[in-house]
Structures are given as C-alpha cells and as structure tokens.
Write a protein that binds this DNA or RNA. Structure first.
Length: 474
RNA sequence: GGUCCCGUCGUCUAGCGGCCUAGGAUAUCGGGUUCUCAUCCCGGCGACAGGGGUUCGAAUCCCCUCGGGACUGCCA
C-alpha cells in the first residue's frame, strides 16, 4: 500500500488560530494513524500580507502542540515552478493573458451587483489578437494569467470522504486568475501544483474550501494530474455562531499558551470538536487519540468553540500532569506573581512540588497561579483575615493553640497523618469538638478560614514555622 | 442575489428504522464527603427547528419550509 501523505498549508498572515490548529491536528492524527507523512507547507504567495515572523510562530505553535511534520516547504521558494506550469497552460490554450485592470474589474463587478447579477469575469481577454496584446503592453498594462473554463460548464463533483459526493451545478466563477501580475500564483493554482508535486494522497481542509476544491478539480483535469482524495471538515464557530475570528475572543494558539493552558488540553478539546470516539471517551492520551481516530466518526455539522469545557479539560490535565513537569510548566506563571522570583533548586524545588501538588485541584489555568492566595501560606508573610481573627477569639482557641504547640515543638518534621493524630489528641485532652481544633489551627497558620487541607499544609511548612505562627496568633 | 454545507439539551456529543418515556460530558442548581475552599461522589433542570410524506413503527429515510454558516478577489 502506498504511503499516505497529508499536508497542513497555512498562510503566514497571522498567528496560528484554533481553527487552523484543528485542521493541522486532524491531518497529523490521520498521518500518524496510517503511518503516513505530514507535510507542512507555508503558503506565502501573497507577498504583501505574508511575513516570516508569522511563519516562524506557526511552526513554534505547532511544535508546542506536539504536531511535528516530516517535510517542509515554502511556496515563495517555488515561484518558478508555478510560472512554468502557467506558461504551459497558456501554450496549450487552456489559459490566457488578461490585461484588465483591477479598477476595471471592480467597476464591472459593482455594476453586476447593482443589477442583481452574479459578478463573473466575462472572458473578454480570451481571444485577444497579438496586436491587441502588444498595444496593451505598450500602454504599460500588467497582465495576469486566467484559467479558461470550458464553454459547456460541466457539473463538478467533489468526492468527499467525509461528507460524501458534493455536486456543483455550476461554478459561480468565471475564468479565474492562476498567475497574478506580480508573477506569484493564486491560491488554487499553487495548491493544485504543490499537492500534485508533493504527492499528497489526501487533502483534508475546512469546509470554507469547498468551492475551491471544485475549482481545483478543474485544474487537475486541465493539467492532466491524478487527483488526491478530498475531505472537508466543518467550520469552527465563535459563540455568535459565525466563523471563528479574532472578534470571538482569544483564538490564537499563542494566547492559549500564554493564558495557562496545557498543550494536551488544546489538543484534546480540538480533537473532540467535530470528532468523537465510539464510546464517548473524553480524556485521551495522544496515543489513544491516534489509535481511535477515524474519518468515520467525524461530524458534518459545525461546532462552537466554547471556553467552558476547555477550562474543565485543563483542570483535568493539570491534575494528571506529572509533578516534575507541572513544576516546570508552573514556574513561568509563578514568576509573574508575587512569591517566586527565580527557579528554585533542590529542597526549594521539592517544597514547590509539594505545594503545587496540594493546590492543583483548584487550578483551572496556570495563570491562576499568579494570584493564588494559597501560595501566600508558603511563600508570603502571614496576615490574619477578619474571619480568622474571629475564630482565634473563641474562648477555646488559646488553649487549643497552646496544646498544639506543645505537641509540635519537639518535632523535626511531621506527616499529614501525624497531624491528624495530634489534632485528635488535643481534641480529647481538652474535650472540644474537631472544629474547635481545626479551625483555629487553620486560622493561625494560614490566616484564612478556607484553603487546602491543613494537615498537608502543616507537613509542608514543618513544625518550626507552624509553631512560630501559632505563637504570633496566640 | 447565486452556489454549496449544516440543523439532537446553552455548549460538545451518542444515536445510523424498533434497545429512545433520547444516553454521556460540560455549564448551572441541589445534596453528600471535608475543619473549610477546591477536588471527588450522588441527584435535578435541560434537546430531536417546523410541516408533510414513506413505514406496522422515525431523532434516524424522502420532500418542502424555516433557521444558521461558508464561498462568491490579481487573499489564502
């Protein structure tokens, strides 16, 4: 069997957004599933809007997501190829030079619109004589090369592996441009040439390319190329149900990274937007995703990219992350907060690990670390809240704190279980309720009346610091 | 306007003619666990866009209507 070859072909005119990331992901999953190759192709033929900066950031974001590619191309490196094929089509009289200016075309388009007609290029430059062409050239007019659609507009059928065959009664485009006046190819032309030359076996892209695919099929025929298979993914929508755009809030992968999301969160959520596993599994590892991925389970209808579930996923993955990795993931965000300035080492790192492990269930995003009040317990100076003071003013509190201190002061360290034991002893010795021990203890040690498990807190803080705080609170 | 795609809880989805008084997840609400918050567990609310067919039987098949979306560039 031939190797499956798929591609992701972004244009470097902006940061990678989640829609593009999903297309990349689906292609990648498909490639991995079939032991195929993923080709990354930067479509930078729009010289004005493309920039190297964006091309780099797209690569960076893909890497961050764990989407790696096997081959890399840039269309701007291949301009002679497109030009050569365009000339070939002109030579075969399947394409022709058109000298109409953009202003003229715009004027005609507007007129057609005003008259309620579909604006279609009228093909007036199709049969220009050599003299006429020469005249235009002498006038200093630029020309483009247009693809000649056959007179008897044939029905185009797009065979779609996801949606099934899609028939176009008629294409609402006239002779479209394949080579622009600056010599760069237009999208459809470059795409067909590259997909063919790069031996792409399956072209999977979002549904907004459906009509492009129809046009491209005409090009495949004119060029006498075998066609790859096609597949169209539904659109990703914003909360307003229109095509996801910057207006829909944060949409670039970069922003999600910056906002404290884990790459596997995004991968998982994106994978399950328009695809679902047979048994409704929701939390996947990457190998599971690859194993279970199939075109059969792709959904035709568009889906809203909603942040709520993403946050839930992120909490799930934060809870699951390996501790050492979590520390590394957390550090950049911690440094943005008030408590940690630089990378801790040895015992400090170990302590941080314990702290993170303790508070991770409460983290939805890593950015929560910037203002995590619980961190103050371990890294800040103690301030008693008014609620904490109230608890400490209970009649029973001073004696409880004293008793706790007596039991702790002789110790070097203490385990969470030992805290439970001590609390129990104090409760029994003083004949009070658990609450009357726990609450003042929490208030004195953390300054707050709510927070992470107090026995874990004491274990991390250690008896010495704990006793100091019991002192100053008492 | 034209062409094309799509239509199950707010959102993501299961469902591919009977297992559906429509299942799961999330969000939300309530309860439980806990010294407390978070986590976790249990429960509630909540959808087949509408109308015609076909069929013994339709969320599932067909048609129409309505609704949403995309495309309609010398952008990709």
């Amino acid at each position: 069997m031939k190797t499956e070859r798929v591609r992701f072909a972004p244009s470097p005119t902006g940061w990678l957004h989640v829609g593009g990331a999903r297309t990349a992901l689906f292609n990648w999953l498909y490639a991995k599933k079939h032991d195929g190759k993923l080709i990354l192709r930067i479509e930078d033929t729009d010289l004005d809007r493309s920039s190297e900066k964006y091309a780099e950031s797209i690569k960076e974001d893909l890497k961050w997501l764990g989407i790696n590619w096997d081959e890399f191309y840039k269309q701007s490196d291949r301009l002679e190829i497109y030009e050569r094929y365009a000339r070939r089509l002109v030579h075969e009289e399947k394409a022709y030079h058109c000298f109409c200016t953009e202003e003229e075309l715009e004027e005609r388009r507007q007129k057609a619109l005003d008259e309620g007609r579909t604006p279609i290029y009228d093909g007036r430059c199709r049969n220009l004589s050599e003299e006429e062409k020469q005249e235009y050239r002498e006038e200093g007019r630029d020309s483009v090369i247009r693809f000649k659609l056959t007179e008897q507009q044939p029905k185009v059928v797009v065979p779609d592996r996801i949606k099934g065959d899609i028939e176009f009664e008629s294409l609402t485009t006239g002779d479209f441009v394949i080579l622009k006046s600056d010599g760069t190819p237009s999208y459809n032309f470059a795409c067909v040439l590259d997909d063919h030359l790069m031996e792409i076996s399956f072209t999977m892209r979002a549904e907004d390319h459906l009509t492009n695919t129809a046009k491209q099929i005409l090009l495949y025929e004119a060029l006498d190329f075998d066609q790859p298979q096609f597949g169209h993914l539904s659109m990703l929508l914003g909360p307003d149900k229109s095509k996801l755009s910057k207006r829909s809030g944060a949409t670039s992968v970069k922003e999600f990274r910056k906002n404290g999301y884990l790459p596997e969160t995004l991968v998982n959520h994106l994978a399950q937007l328009g695809w679902s596993s047979k048994d409704n599994q929701e939390i996947f590892t990457i190998p599971e995703l690859i194993e279970q991925f199939s075109l059969d389970n792709i959904i035709d209808s568009p889906q809203v990219f909603d942040r709520e579930k993403l946050d839930w996923f992120n909490n799930q993955y934060i809870k699951r992350a390996e501790l050492d990795r979590l520390i590394d993931l957390a550090l950049p965000f911690l440094k943005q907060g008030d408590y940690i300035e630089e990378d801790p080492e040895d015992e400090e790192r170990e302590k941080l690990g314990k702290v993170l492990d303790l508070i991770r269930p409460s983290l939805e995003k890593l950015t929560d670390l910037k203002e995590q009040e619980d961190l103050a317990i371990f890294y800040g100076s103690l301030e008693l809240s008014s609620e904490a003071r109230e608890v400490l003013s209970w009649d029973s509190s001073p004696a409880v704190l004293r008793a706790l201190k007596d039991k702790l002061s002789a110790r070097e360290s203490i385990s969470p279980d030992e805290v439970s034991t001590i609390v129990k002893e104090v409760k029994e010795d003083l004949e009070v309720e658990y609450k009357e021990v726990y609450k003042p203890l929490r208030a004195a040690v953390t300054g707050k009346i709510s927070g992470p498990e107090i026995k874990e807190v004491l274990s991390i803080l250690g008896p010495e610091v704990t006793c100091e705080r019991l002192d100053s609170a008492g």
